[in-house]
Design a protein around this nucleic acid. Structure first.
Lengths: 355, 355
DNA sequence: ACCGGGCAGGTAAGCGCTTTCCTGCAAGAC
DNA sequence: GTCTTGCAGGAAAGCGCTTACCTGCCCGGT
């Protein structure tokens, strides 16, 4: 058996650098074409003997095909990219779980990019994913109220789509195409009505950054529901902060300091609500006896804080799954928009307004 | 200006397919080499005029270089891969945050792969990352007690390292190389001593899967500390379940049903502890008056549950950052092992054993 | 006026793979 | 016995880039 000798005599010394397809071919004593066919299970038949020789060489050399070379040669585009604000934020990790599930089912690799809410970086990542030749890009973060950014982003996305790329967005973006829309406005209306039914009049709102469409859509819904009951939501009872725990605590503190008589805090996401809860606990304010607290999203930990958080549930995992399904489904003629309903989940952090 | 005509006359119709470097070159009226030099800011000088022509063509065609072709042509390897059990698990999202930070600082792309604790998939991902030509692979999940798997994994990692790939692991794996070691054993000893000082005798342990080294290391530490005080940890007071909230609730229920007189539940991670808390709440068992609950990891939400969780802090973000630093630092002669200390964090879920 | 040096730009050889097309051979048809 | 067929396997042309090397020009020196 002269395989070893053959290989050793080859131009490329083994052990130096990564084994390539031609190393395998040489060692198996076949052409690269045949080796490739065996390795990829091509439809072209190869005799059992050669097949075995190739497979043995693959095992001996621990050969792994260079994915970049493969991608170049076929023009397949297998991977899918997603741009989220931050995977370590439960809101996004839930969505990501849904995206992953569908992607994996379809044998796609998912590349996750964290923009950390930096529009600049979001733009960069679109380019990067484009460069990676992904089959689809999913924008999972909220849209921004920023005309310049939006124009730039749309330009890039359109260019990408023009070359056959698929795009799906989650949430409201100024991008016409396939989209999954959580019913932020409707959910906030549910919340607003609940607030009214419980008799709350002095309501503080702990809001996320005002440049995010998620923030403004939820505010709009809240306003609408309160208006139904003849109440308004004055701007001074809204505090904008980062969409996280610390932002929530901070905004709650500011709200309470300005107006100690508030009977309810409506946080525009659960992280902020948890921050609010923490602050109220620190100040020994009884929840919900003195102040009711409401969240939004119903992320998993909402039921584990104390008191368990009353919140508006968004089907996060489902949203991810739907978005991926849209992205992987060859585009329809019309942009498809799937709206997903929100649902009010009553738990222990809310109660009737004290009198 | 005949640029448009030139381009239209070119072999490749524009608008069909992605613009390539030679499309750009043709449109700018230069050679691909020059176009490449301008685009990559090569050290080779190019006259201002040509530079501008190229840049204009790039903008007009919305050209983005094909990353795969670039990777093939240079032999750079820029990206880094990490295999975690599940990014949506806070334990891993914290670690990932640390990894990301360092990777981003060094201008590296991070590819995140979720194994969902499936050893098979872990193996596949190593291949996949190898195929992607990543510069380093980081294993962030716990090791498994499984000789076959370990041998296979080591084989693949060794092959990868033999071709210049860097590997760093977080936690105990049977892999000799750079590693970041959370002090699971030491942390568990801290926990065991605290348990003894508080006078707990009948202690139930809510453990993760027994195949994970994380589980066994923590158990070992716990046993050692109890032994110091002349106590033992009988096997029937240990319940193994999934390392998540539901697993924790389930194991706690089983433990309590078998032995209602337990005065403490030591969960081997925070998610399980939160499940334990939820179950105790559901059964109206006062914590910590009747049963104390302990967690492990100190993930962010530990302070937000009620009662706030007493737990063992592991510097998760730091662990990620260190691991990435090791991975990106050209290997030293000896494997570097960095051990990170654990710290007991006393909160409200623990108290003296009732008598 | 001639020659050499320097330098902008182009030419072409890969990077590692896939795949089309072609070759050479054996088997079956007449 | 020659002539198709059929079929396994190989040669080679790319995929879209980078880069070492070469070319041709303009300049200064003598």
């Amino acid at each position: 058996m002269s395989l070893v000798a053959t290989a050793a005599a080859g131009a490329t010394r083994e052990g130096a650098g990564v084994a390539t397809l031609s190393d395998v071919a040489r060692r198996a004593g076949v052409s690269p074409a045949t080796a490739s066919r065996v390795i990829n299970g091509s439809s072209k038949p190869v005799t059992e003997e050669l097949r075995e020789r190739v497979l043995r060489a693959v095992a001996e050399l621990q050969y792994v095909p260079n994915a970049h070379a493969q991608l170049l040669a076929r023009s397949h585009r297998g991977a899918v990219g997603v741009i989220v604000h931050d995977v370590s934020d439960p809101y996004f990790s839930e969505i990501t779980r849904g995206l992953q599930r569908v992607a994996t089912d379809q044998g796609r690799l998912l590349m996750i990019c964290n923009s950390y809410r930096d529009p600049e970086r979001e733009l960069e990542y679109v380019e990067l994913l484009r460069g990676q030749q992904v089959a689809a890009i999913i924008l999972a973060g909220s849209g921004y109220h920023d005309a310049d950014f939006t124009r730039l982003l749309n330009g890039k996305l359109t260019a990408y789509e023009a070359t056959g790329g698929r795009v799906a967005v989650i949430g409201r973006h100024e991008h016409s195409g396939d989209a999954v829309m959580p019913d932020n406005r409707g959910g906030a209306e549910l919340l607003g009505r609940e607030l009214c039914h419980l008799g709350h009049e002095r309501i503080g709102v702990v809001a996320g950054p005002r440049v995010l469409t998620t923030t403004t859509d939820r505010l709009t819904g809240l306003r609408a529901a309160l208006a139904e009951h003849g109440r308004d939501l004055p701007e001074h009872r809204i505090r904008y902060a980062d969409f996280d725990r610390d932002g929530g605590a901070e905004a709650t503190a500011a709200l309470l300091d300005a107006e100690p008589g508030l009977t309810a805090i409506a946080a525009l996401n659960d992280s902020m609500a948890i921050g609010a809860l923490a602050l109220l606990r620190a100040r020994a304010v009884p929840v919900p006896q003195q102040v009711s607290v409401f969240g939004f999203d119903d992320m998993p930990m909402a039921r584990d804080v104390t008191p368990a958080l009353t919140t508006v549930r968004l089907p996060l995992v489902e949203m991810g799954a739907r978005a991926m399904a849209l992205a992987l489904d060859p585009g329809a003629a019309h942009p498809r928009v799937e709206s997903l309903a929100a649902e009010l989940i009553r738990r222990d952090s809310s109660g009737p307004a004290p009198r």
